[in-house]
Design a protein around this nucleic acid. Structure first.
Length: 221
DNA sequence: AACGCTATCAACCGCTCTCGC
DNA sequence: AGCGAGAGCGGTTGATAGCGT
């Protein structure tokens, strides 16, 4: 056996408490980041990726674990409506929650709940929606194109944005109140928990423009 | 008690993005 | 401009706990 072509074989599977302790101590001493160094120097036989994930999802300070509150559930549903499967973005609005946790929670709990709700509402809504959608569709279409165009003009180079906005359209998410203009009309819903959190930062991250700018464009185009 | 099924969630995998050279 | 390494993201897998029969 020649040593030079032997790749380090990393350990897989669940982390032991002693491994957690080693990782925690190493990061506390040397700081977060450079996970390759963490992997190489900590003595853990774990990949850089694995170390990063373990730290980010479980060992990082201020991680909130356990049951989701009703507010958190509601927020996830609403943000998912607006942002789609952008878990890190959604998790960023939930202090102490990680993208992995939000994603898991969505897949196991909320996904079912939402599809169930949609099914029960579908019958009563479908007639009404059909009427409204023909009116609102062109406006929604227009605003989406405009939003995407803003990003393109600014040279953001985010090829993925256009596609997920498209997905949002295709997946029949009712992200707006039909009588209000634009795709972002849900902003006019003065919901107590949602409004303060859906701030400009979300828009900046998601659309490359601030919520204020977007509203201006949507309202006074 | 034993078995099978389902739900849950931690962790991995593959891909994309970013940045430095 | 092209390349490689590191970091991040979203989708998927697999172990296992819980429940029903």
């Amino acid at each position: 056996m020649q040593g030079k072509d032997v790749k380090p074989r990393f350990k897989k599977g669940f982390w032991k408490p002693e491994e957690d302790l080693i990782l925690k101590k190493y990061v506390q001493t040397h700081g977060e980041g450079n996970w390759t160094a963490v992997s190489n120097k900590s003595g853990l036989l774990r990949s850089a990726k694995s170390c990063r994930l373990r730290w980010k999802n479980y060992l990082r300070p201020n991680i909130k674990r356990g049951m989701m509150s009703e507010d958190e559930k509601d927020l996830i549903i609403r943000l998912h409506k607006l942002l789609g499967n952008r878990w890190s973005l959604i998790a960023g609005r939930l202090p102490g929650r990680t993208d992995n946790e939000v994603k898991n929670y969505w897949n196991t709990h909320l996904n079912k709940r939402v599809s169930r709700d949609q099914t029960t509402h579908l019958d009563s809504q479908s007639e009404k929606n059909h009427q409204l959608s023909s009116d609102s569709h062109s406006l929604k279409e227009k605003n989406l194109e405009k939003t995407t165009a803003v990003r393109t003009e600014e040279g953001e180079g985010d090829a993925g944005l256009g596609s997920w906005v498209e997905e949002l359209k295709i997946s029949n998410y009712d992200v707006g109140i039909p009588s209000l203009p634009g795709e972002y009309s849900m902003l006019f819903n003065t919901d107590d928990t949602f409004m303060p959190i859906l701030d400009n930062l979300v828009f900046l991250e998601a659309f490359g423009t601030s919520g204020d700018e977007l509203l201006q464009e949507t309202l006074f185009m």
